[in-house]
Simulated assay, not measured.
Amino acid sequence: MRQMAVIAPVAMVMVGGLSGCDAAQPTDSRFAPDYQGVETTLLDGDLVKFDVAMQGARGPVDVENYAECAAAQYALIRGYGFARHLRTNVYEEAGLWRGDAVYTISPALPRGVRTIDAEVVTASCVENGIPMV
């Protein structure tokens, strides 16, 4: 009987501790972006600016990916196989995400760490449902 007295309070503490935990609340984490277009501006020879807009982005990375897809497709359209990312500015206002990205495009793999193989990136964009130029 004495053992029961010791076990009961321990069991109550364990059950009480568990009941204090909030159950996981289901969240609607479905990603359903609304891509609103790309404007492309040739700045100088192989230097290109991409202005993108979208709603439903989860954060800046989604906008950056959209701009990268546009840059990869643009490089292929121009007969180039590669691009190098120079910069991307992203901002959000009232649920509308905008980004402006600058890339260089080239026929050969450019120097630098932020280079993209246009064919590989466009295939990934198609697979992920991200529209391109």
Rank of each mutant, 00 (worst) to 15 (best):
R78I: 05
A71K: 07
G37W: 03
T122H: 01
P107N: 12
T41M: 12
M1R: 01
D117Y: 06
A32I: 04
G79N: 01
A24K: 12
N128G: 06
D100A: 13
D44Y: 12
A11W: 01
V13K: 07
G59D: 04
E64V: 06
R30I: 01
P9A: 15
Y80W: 11
V133I: 12
G129A: 05
I77A: 15
T41N: 14
P9T: 15
Y35R: 01
A32L: 10
D44A: 15
V63F: 03
D22T: 13
L47V: 14
S29M: 03
Y74F: 14
C69F: 00
D34T: 09
A94N: 13
V10G: 02
G112K: 09
P26E: 02
A83V: 14
V52K: 08
D22G: 14
M1H: 10
Y66T: 02
E127Q: 11
M14K: 03
A23V: 10
V10E: 09
C21L: 14
G20M: 08
I105D: 00
E39Y: 03
M54Y: 06
D62M: 07
T41K: 13
M4K: 10
P110V: 09
Q73S: 11
A118D: 00
A101T: 06
I105V: 14
Q25K: 11
R2K: 13
D34F: 04
V13H: 03
A108R: 06
S106D: 14
E68D: 14
I116G: 02
R78T: 11
P107H: 12
M14E: 05
P110N: 08
R78N: 13
T27S: 10
M14W: 04
E119Y: 13
G59P: 04
L42R: 15
D34P: 01
T122A: 03
P131S: 04
V52C: 03
G59V: 06
A5P: 11
V10A: 11
T40F: 00
S124T: 03
D44T: 03
C125S: 02
A75D: 11
Y66I: 08
S124A: 08
D44K: 10
M54H: 03
V126P: 07
N128Y: 02
C69V: 04
Q73R: 11
Y66D: 00
G95Y: 06
F31Y: 05
D44F: 12
D46L: 12
G45R: 15
D34R: 07
A101K: 05
D46V: 10
G95H: 04
R30P: 05
P26C: 04
A53I: 06
V13Q: 07
M4I: 10
Q25A: 10
V63L: 01
V6D: 14
F50N: 06
A101E: 06
M14D: 01
M12V: 15
P107T: 12
M12E: 09
N65R: 00
D51K: 03
G99C: 08
R98N: 05
T115I: 08
Q25M: 09
S124W: 00
I105F: 00
L42P: 05
G20T: 08
P110Y: 06
E39G: 02
